[in-house]
Amino acid sequence: MSTPQKKPLYIGHRQRLKARFLTAPQALPDYELLELFLGLLYPRKDMKPLAKTLLEKHGSLWGVFFRSELSSHWGILCFHEIARRLLIREIQQAPVLNNIDKVMNYAYITMSHLSQEEFRVFFLNKKYELIHEETIQTGTLDEVALYPRPLMRRCLELNSANLILIHNHPSGDPRPSRADIALTHALETALFPFQIHILDHIIMGKYAAFSFREEGYLGQKPIRSQKAAEPDGDTPQ
């Protein structure tokens, strides 16, 4: 007669952890919350050692989910996409100018961890409601080009009257370069005759964002160069 196999000890631990989570999810420390999540990805392994190791190595849940070796796992990518869709849904509930904090949250979640520069655009109607969100261009580690003609063509296709531009700085510093400032002015000038307006240009760094609108970098006022924005050799895109 064969001896029945004992269940691994971590199975009972995981069940107890799940019960604690369902009772008071906010009470779980980060490593236990991560352990519970990793258990969904690897149901036949003890995830406690890995959860502790990842947090120690990457410093936070953010680091684990966006900057660790697990960030390309299909389960993590699924989590990213669910978060993106939830945030977009929230932004669609009201005019975007009333949801600018949610736009910032969206940009932080979706772009601050990227290793290459990307330009994303929120296309809005005349009532400032979100029509469509799209990655327009992907660039290199420190440069991305966005040209007025294809952007204007896309606006006409979507019947968009207002835009919010978002791009990231993989260096982590959200302050605009001279090329960023020149590009924003060039786009404003090119789109203005078609009654297409740039409501904001948001640059995402690692931990913070820079808003052209909040800093007075949009409209007819002359744009000033920041002392902190070092010359980088770029020319207006």
Rank of each mutant, 00 (worst) to 15 (best):
11 I>L: 13
207 Y>W: 13
85 R>V: 05
19 A>D: 12
163 L>K: 05
172 G>I: 03
67 R>W: 08
209 A>C: 11
98 N>G: 08
99 N>A: 15
148 P>R: 07
132 H>Q: 09
17 L>A: 02
220 Q>P: 04
14 R>L: 09
113 H>G: 02
52 K>I: 06
32 E>M: 07
37 F>Q: 03
235 T>Q: 14
92 Q>E: 14
122 F>P: 03
140 T>K: 14
233 G>N: 04
22 L>K: 07
25 P>N: 00
214 E>D: 13
220 Q>G: 11
202 I>V: 12
85 R>F: 10
160 S>L: 02
232 D>P: 00
208 A>T: 14
42 Y>V: 04
217 Y>Q: 10
15 Q>Y: 04
123 F>M: 02
32 E>W: 04
89 R>K: 15
19 A>V: 08
145 A>C: 10
158 L>T: 00
105 N>K: 11
105 N>P: 07
95 P>D: 06
86 L>R: 15
188 E>F: 03
33 L>N: 05
9 L>E: 13
60 S>N: 07
7 K>Y: 07
222 P>Y: 00
208 A>S: 14
218 L>N: 01
168 N>L: 01
215 E>N: 13
72 S>Y: 04
95 P>T: 01
108 Y>M: 14
111 M>H: 07
98 N>Y: 13
165 L>A: 03
193 P>V: 08
32 E>Y: 05
28 L>M: 06
23 T>Q: 14
55 L>K: 06
145 A>V: 12
177 S>T: 15
159 N>S: 15
10 Y>W: 14
194 F>N: 12
66 F>R: 10
236 P>W: 06
141 L>G: 08
104 M>A: 13
